[in-house]
């Protein structure tokens, strides 16, 4: 389980600490408050526990600063400065912290100072990052192209295709996973099949290629693959950037149902969202025993930084950028109705 992340002078964060819950961690905030940056940093740290890749290289791969210059990830201000990111996880028998620091002059990954890598990587974390753009429809040949060509694609896109193409886990699908797969099958009205890196939805009508499917259904198909092939199991980490993108709000009920089931199964989840329906579905479907944290990121203009407020109560989310939008709409609607402009 990822316990905490601390940023110092890293991208838009002067200083920010996020304490994670073991279950679902929902990040809300206006554009530019760093939701995706948090998800990417956590993902990079989790991913290297399996790949054993250099942490700085992975950070460069997911953020892709210009010319892959590490120093461009330091909080922008005049002069020289140092920044760091430190992540803490729970291990059997204690905690482990991975820390990386570097200066704004760092050109390459080997300029970074990394501490705690051995203990950090001693227990692998199965992690998956679902980016905003659905990738499975573009899967055929994509990874081969990225391997051999200089393409400006963040590694999160390459990784998700690989995760979806991972072969099935040996053994039977357990009860928890089977239940979630059934929810997904009902929502998609079919199952997912893969043939030569191409994804299909198989139902009574036959095999429908993903490129012809609605993007929302493809997202459900991706989840189905990740659960079916054992990528998402107890102890896994799921990071999902804007699950609501290209999804009819009605489908969010199923998405939230699945996320709650995954959380109950032992998957730790980090989600960034702009969507009221997503938040409200969580509020309506969550049980008292579910672990859910709402992290609200907001700008502090006078300090030129971003701050965070965390609560486990839906109604206590503050500031709530999503609700504030509806408050503004409501007030403007009332003003229009009663002629007060």
């Amino acid at each position: 389980m990822i316990k905490k992340i601390k940023f110092d002078q890293f991208t838009i964060f002067k200083e920010l600490t996020v304490d994670f819950f073991p279950g679902i961690n929902v990040f809300i905030g206006t554009n530019g408050t760093g939701k995706t940056h948090i998800l990417k940093a956590v993902y990079a740290a989790a991913d290297i526990t399996k790949t054993k890749k250099n942490f700085a290289d992975k950070i460069l791969g997911v953020y892709m600063p210009s010319e892959l210059q590490l120093g461009r990830l330091i909080y922008r201000k005049p002069g020289s400065s140092e920044g760091a990111v430190a992540i803490t996880r729970k291990l059997n028998g204690g905690n482990a912290t991975l820390r990386m620091s570097f200066s704004n002059h760092a050109k390459r990954s080997d300029s970074a100072k990394i501490i705690g890598i051995n203990k950090w990587c001693s227990e692998p974390i199965e992690s998956v990052y679902i980016p905003v753009k659905e990738m499975l429809a573009n899967a055929p040949g994509f990874n081969s192209m990225v391997t051999y060509r200089e393409l400006h694609f963040e590694e999160i896109y390459v990784d998700i295709v690989n995760r979806a193409l991972t072969p099935l886990l040996k053994g039977n699908v357990d009860g928890d996973r089977r239940r979630i797969l059934e929810i997904l099958q009902n929502a998609m009205k079919g199952k997912v099949r893969v043939k030569k890196e191409e994804f299909f939805l198989r139902n009574k009508q036959g095999n429908l290629e993903f490129s012809l499917l609605a993007e929302g259904i493809r997202k459900l198909g991706l989840l189905w693959m990740l659960i079916q092939n054992g990528t998402l199991l107890s102890g896994s980490l799921l990071l999902w950037d804007e699950p609501e993108a290209n999804l009819n709000p009605k489908l969010l009920q199923s998405i939230v149902e699945i996320l709650l089931e995954l959380q109950r199964m032992g998957v730790q989840i980090l989600v960034a969202t702009h969507d009221y329906v997503f938040l409200k579905e969580l509020d309506l479907q969550a049980k008292a025993t579910d672990s859910i944290a709402f992290h609200s990121l907001y700008r502090v203009p006078e300090q030129q930084t971003v701050a965070i407020e965390t609560t486990d109560k839906y109604l206590d989310i503050h500031p709530n950028a999503i609700a504030e939008t509806f408050t503004d709409l409501y007030n403007r609607d009332v003003e229009r109705a009663i002629g007060r402009k």
Binding site: F326, T327, Y330
Partner: peptide
């Protein structure tokens, strides 16, 4: 008092 739901009703 969630405005989104009040607006939906309206």
């Amino acid at each position: 008092n969630e405005e989104a739901l009040l607006m939906g009703f309206k």
